[in-house]
Design a protein around this nucleic acid. Sequence first.
DNA 1: GTTACTGCAAACTTTTTGCACGACA
DNA 2: TGTCGTGCAAAAAGTTTGCAGTAAC
Lengths: 153, 153
Amino acid sequence: MSVPAEEIERRVQALSAGIQDAGLRLTHQRLEIVREVAGSKTHPDVETLYRGVRKRMPTVSLDTVYRTLSVLTERGLIERVTATAGPARYDGNPFPHHHFVCTRCGLVRDIDDANTDAIPPTKQTDSLGEVESIQIQYRGVCAACRQAATSSN
Amino acid sequence: MSVPAEEIERRVQALSAGIQDAGLRLTHQRLEIVREVAGSKTHPDVETLYRGVRKRMPTVSLDTVYRTLSVLTERGLIERVTATAGPARYDGNPFPHHHFVCTRCGLVRDIDDANTDAIPPTKQTDSLGEVESIQIQYRGVCAACRQAATSSN
DNA sequence: GTTACTGCAAACTTTTTGCACGACA
DNA sequence: TGTCGTGCAAAAAGTTTGCAGTAAC
């Protein structure tokens, strides 16, 4: 149920290229952090990514994880997940997609690009600015939380 | 260009009722905080709301603003804005709506309920859980940022 | 009259920053 | 070889919590 190896590879390629195209250095640390975030489907927070990277690179520092994620986000290569409260979480999938969000436990999972052509810009959006992309949040209760609620009733 | 008085009133009513229906006390502090958040269309952060409330109630504390916003959010009466990084921002509109988000400056504005029937749950969402609501983020560049970019080119 | 809420202060968590050393292009 | 990036440490920012007094119901 993890991200398929070839998909991880595709993401790592896109992110690595993005770093180098921006004239930035692709250091060992950055590559490992890219691998970690690209290989996760849970949209982890910085601390979790840090622990994951340290398994392969024990000397990496938390600051570097913060800084690398900032760099990637500033360049638009990855996104901060804007769906949950608490510590920042990151989305290592650099291709367009949407999110399912569990309102109970904060689980976030990617949803492939839906038919966003069905959602045209409106008069309201037109008066505010130019819409460049549309992201949908499907909010609800995940299977695990649903089961937990059922069995305790 | 602010929220119309009757709309503010409608929101304050809904939020006040929500507090009391939950068996909580509608204190002066809570009412002023509700007024502040319901009257703003900018989705302000806690510090900004605090300053606004203090104009009318100089003795209110920042903690109480934090606590009241937490209470309102936990009860599902208002929502934390899940669109921007940085300090938490709150959306005092308790009725269904969507958001336009400027990716440059972080401006967030409400968009009236679009035709979300055009976005049915998918096989993917079905396998993750039950979708209860759909929120659309229209992302782009707001008029002010667009103008700033144009005039500096 | 109870009990929940508030203000104050302190603590805690998360994130950012300055600096000197080390490594990438 | 020059410059960008890293690790360390300290600081800053944002948020939460314990406690005693106060106010809502």
